[in-house]
Amino acid sequence: MSNVETRMPLSAVAPAKPMAHSRADRRAEQVQTFVRYALLIAVGFVMLYPLLWLVGASFKTNSEIFGSIGFIPEAPTLDGYRKGWETSTPYTFGRFFWNTFLIILPKTIFTAISCAVVAYGFARFEFPGKKVLFASLIATLLLPNVVTRIPQYILFREMGWLDSYLPLWVPSAFAGDAFFVFMLVQFLRAIPRDMEEAARVDGANSFQTLIYIVVPMLLPALISVALFQFMWTMNDFLGPLIYLSSVESFPVSLALKLSIDTTEAFDWNRILAMSVLALLPALIVFFIAQRYFIEGISAGGVKG
């Protein structure tokens, strides 16, 4: 009842404007919307064009690739995919995908585990030297990757790990990625401690609290961490290039380059076709986990 009463005066005021006026307003609004969307679509198209061209060109013949700027192939062919998959090596591209998977799987899993443990420690416990340790963690964030490459290479050579996947994922298993630790610490700081205290009163020790309470609450952030690690590892070229020497253990990123090296006259359509395939896993995983991913980043970022 009161609702109706308060709404009455409002609706009484609204029609006071002449009808013609409001129609003109609506017209202007429509034009504005149209212009806005046209502009957005145009810019979006320009941004996406290289990607569209890549996909289109992967279905073109080699001669057509450089013949036209358009991205729709005149005579679509799967030739690039078929021959590209075969590669010029004794292995198919399937082998390289499998190799990538062998690096990504332990790296992603152990990153999530180790970073969660380390972040939990930094965010929830007081221990001597905590400030110094956290400061050095942040300092490694700022350190250019390149400066540690050579000492690391020598270290792993001494350990006899060259030409294996170990140098590629073992550092991550010890929370070597400072960025992820930092991100999780920020996320944890935004989560009230009450639930963990309740768990302790319920009889959980620190480890049980981490497993049963903290990790489930951290899940969106952990999924972001896993996704970032997945994509970065998928795209990592320098790491495998430095540590891997035998073709049979190459991941996709190196294999793509391989087909450029070994073929005298580059079969661009094969390279492009394989590039498209190489994009797929990251895209698929991203779209599946998109919801958590965005939740994780924004929650960590806004409240952190």
Partner: peptide, 11 residues
């Protein structure tokens, strides 16, 4: 213990 903001385990 009963906490001010309930502290139920959200998941």
């Amino acid at each position: 213990m009963v906490f001010q903001n309930y502290a139920l385990y959200p998941h």
